[in-house]
């Protein structure tokens, strides 16, 4: 998994969630996305599912997979790298 993909995922998060005033460099690759980290919730997660599918053709099929995928930017990038078409 490349650093370039990790940067792309950070930008995808910013764009999909329309986070104002935040740059990719402001997001830590291993920080939790939910709770104490970026503070995302299930509504955000579904928005990210759609964005990942649109940008990379990657499907998050169920909630259990989503829980693993959305642990951090790095886990999102790893899932994309493994599953993109």
């Amino acid at each position: 998994m490349s650093e370039e993909l990790i940067e792309q995922v950070k930008q995808l998060i910013i764009d999909a969630l329309r986070i104002e005033g935040m740059a990719p460099a402001d997001i830590e690759s291993d920080a939790p996305l939910f709770g104490e980290g970026l503070g995302l919730d299930s509504i955000d997660a579904l928005q990210l599912v759609v964005a990942m599918e649109k940008s990379y053709g990657v499907v998050v099929p169920d909630a259990a997979t989503g829980t693993k995928v959305f642990q951090s930017v790095r886990s999102m990038a790893a899932y994309i790298a493994e599953n993109r078409k």
Binding site: L46, V49, V60, D62, A63
Partner: peptide, 10 residues
């Protein structure tokens, strides 16, 4: 809902 594929239920 969960059995039908809901992404999240609470």
């Amino acid at each position: 809902s969960l059995s039908l594929g809901a992404f999240s239920v609470r």
